[in-house]
Amino acid sequence: MEKVIEVKNLEKSYKKKKTKELVKAVDGVSFDVYRGEILGLLGPNGAGKTTTIKSICGLLKPNGGSVHINGFDSNKQRLKAVNYISAVLEGNRNIYWRLTVRENMEYFAGNRGISKKEIQGKIDELLNFFNLKQKEDELVSSLSRGMQQKLAIAVALLPDTDVVLLDEPTLGLDVETSYEVRSLLKRIVEEHGKTIIVSTHDMPVVQEVCDRTVIINGGKVVADEKVEDLIKLFETRAYCFTIGDELTNQQVTAIENHFPIVEINDKQINVTLEKEDDLYIIMDILKSEQTNIEKIDRTTVDFEQVFMQLVRGGDQHETTVASH
């Protein structure tokens, strides 16, 4: 597959205002984006997602590493790189509320040097695609949030860029509109041949729409996998032990020391194993106090659980998962 974006060892530090202490927002982030895919960029608040996104757009200069879009360095050749990428960074705030739908589209196209006459066909096509044709002469301020969001995405699709970057495209939308936006994203890739990067906290977006996901935590990439592979990987490792007796304090400590992702409730132990051998280790811990094992089940996981486990697991998972 052809690489469209190459993020290599990206580093960015900020100075804290009060203490002047240097904080690493992004610490050696690397991943690639391939033509025609939808990549989900995930991470908890403060993980370094926004820093990564803004570095890709060339709006932030990194301290180290590089971002190349179609071979152009987004830091050193920003204006050339920006030719291949468009973005919706602030959702419905990215458009002018006092202009109409069509006026917004004409203005942003003009700002990229495209003539009003030349862009009319594309505007009509996108208005139909996003079901906004009937609203084209209405002020953006009078539209619903969902429509404003769709317009912001439509504006990003106006120029002939290869990549569209969407920051939280479903934030604040109701279930129905969120569903509509998700299906539109798939259609954008299929019908417009775009590559999409979606930064989101919305797990259904990732599970339904994204081909691959890059999870960032603490400024580092902790997973770079196909969504289904990630779920499978965790499904094969997630076990639920139902026990007949209460665990002793020593057993709890031993389990918690060995397994960073573990949840002990009354007579149930939900644990994610790192290696195949781990199963024997937990059995040994239970056997050491003659704990009665009633049942061992494989747990089914959804993407939200996978995400939580990766983020909670932090650095321990970084090498294991990212190397797959």
Binding site: L89, N94, N111
Partner: peptide
């Protein structure tokens, strides 16, 4: 909230 959007122009 439109400033960064304006910065996204290749011009």
């Amino acid at each position: 909230g439109t400033l960064e959007q304006l910065f996204m122009t290749p011009l």
